[in-house]
Simulated assay, not measured.
Amino acid sequence: MAETRFDIVAMGDAIVDVIASCDEDFLVNHRLPKGSMQLLTPQAADSLYAAMGQAREMSGGSAANSMAGIAAMGARSAFIGQVAGDQLGTIFAHDMHALGVHFDTPPLSFGPPTGRCLILVTPDGQRTMNTAPGASHELDVSALDEALVRDSAILFLEGYLFGPARPRAAMMRAVDIAHAAGRKVAFTLSESVCIADRKAGFHAMLDGGGVDLLFANEDEALQLTGRTGLEEALAELSQKVPTLVITRGAAGALAVEDGKTVRIPAMPVPNVVDTTGAGDLFAAGFLTARVKGAPLAKCLSTGAIAAAEIISHYGARPEADLKEWIEL
C-alpha cells in the first residue's frame, strides 16, 4: 500500500472495561443471559457494579482493542472515539498513549460520563458484557479528524457505534473521506445484539459500496442475512463486499475474496481464561497482515494467533509480545 502516516485508524466506542469473575448463580440472580451483551443506563451500571466482586479496570472498546493489538504487532494505529473529561476518560487516554496508539479526540466538558463495560467472566471463560456507553455515543462529526482519516491506509469501523444517529453520521462522513482519498474501509458487525435494530442501516451501507472488508462471526452473518445456513449467508454477503471474513470460534475462520474461499483451523489454546476481545484481536491480526501485504491465508492465521493470545488471559489487551508470536 502507498505510504501513509498511519496503517489503520479506527472509530469506535471509547470504553473502560471493569472485569470480575462470577459464578453461574450470579448471572441467574441478576437476570443476565450468559454470553450476551446488553446496554445499561448509568444508574443500572452503578447497581450492577456495586454487586460485582473484586474487579480490575482496563481500557476497552471493540475497535480500540483492535488498535491496541495492531500497535503491539508493530503497525501504526490511531483511534477516534469520545470520552468525557473525567477519571475514566483520563485512564482511557493514558492507556491508548502508553500502548502507542495515536488518540487525540478532545474530551467532552459536559454531558454523560465516559463509557464503561461491566464484564462478568464465568469459570468456563465465557464473558457476559453489560455496557453503559455514556460519552462514547456522543461522538459528533465536529470531533472527526478528517486529515487523520485521509492519511491512514485503512479506516476501521465497529458496529457497536453504528446505532446512535450522531456517531453514525460521523462514521459515514469518515467513509466518504476515506474513499475519496483512495483508502479502504473495514467494518466489523461487533455483536449479534447490534444487528436487529440496525439491519437496514448495515445493508444500506453494504449495498452502497461503503465497505471493502467485512468482519463477522458465523451467528452475525446468519442474523444479518436472515439465512439458516452459513454457505447461503456467504454467497449473499460476498456479493456485497470485496473481502468477507467470518470467524467461527473453535471451528476456525474463513475469508472470501475474488471468488475464492480460504479456510483455516482455530489455534489450539490449552487454557481458555476469558474470551473477551477474541474477535477484536482477530481483526487486529488480520488487518496488520493485510497492510503488510500478506496473502489472505496469512492474514487469517495472523488473526487466529492474536485471538489465541487474548483468550489465554483476562482482558482484551495483549499481555504477551505479539511481535514474537507472529511472522510478517
Rank of each mutant, 00 (worst) to 15 (best):
V9E: 00
A10D: 01
A10S: 03
D25R: 15
F26Q: 02
H30P: 09
S36Q: 08
S36Y: 05
P42E: 07
L48D: 11
Q54M: 13
A55P: 04
M58K: 15
A63H: 04
S66L: 09
S66H: 08
G69I: 05
G69N: 07
I80N: 04
F92Y: 10
D95P: 13
L99N: 13
V101P: 01
P107R: 09
P107M: 02
P112Q: 07
T114A: 06
L120G: 04
D124F: 00
T128E: 07
T128Q: 06
P133S: 11
A147F: 12
V149T: 03
A153R: 14
I154Q: 05
E158N: 04
R166L: 13
A169P: 05
A174I: 03
V175P: 07
R183F: 07
A186V: 07
S190H: 00
K199Q: 09
A200C: 10
G201C: 06
D212C: 03
D219M: 12
E232I: 08
E232L: 12
V241Q: 00
V241S: 03
V245Y: 00
D258E: 13
P270K: 11
G277D: 11
A278D: 05
L287R: 04
T288S: 13
A294D: 09
L296R: 01
T302W: 05
I310D: 01
S312C: 09
S312P: 12
Y314I: 12
A316D: 10
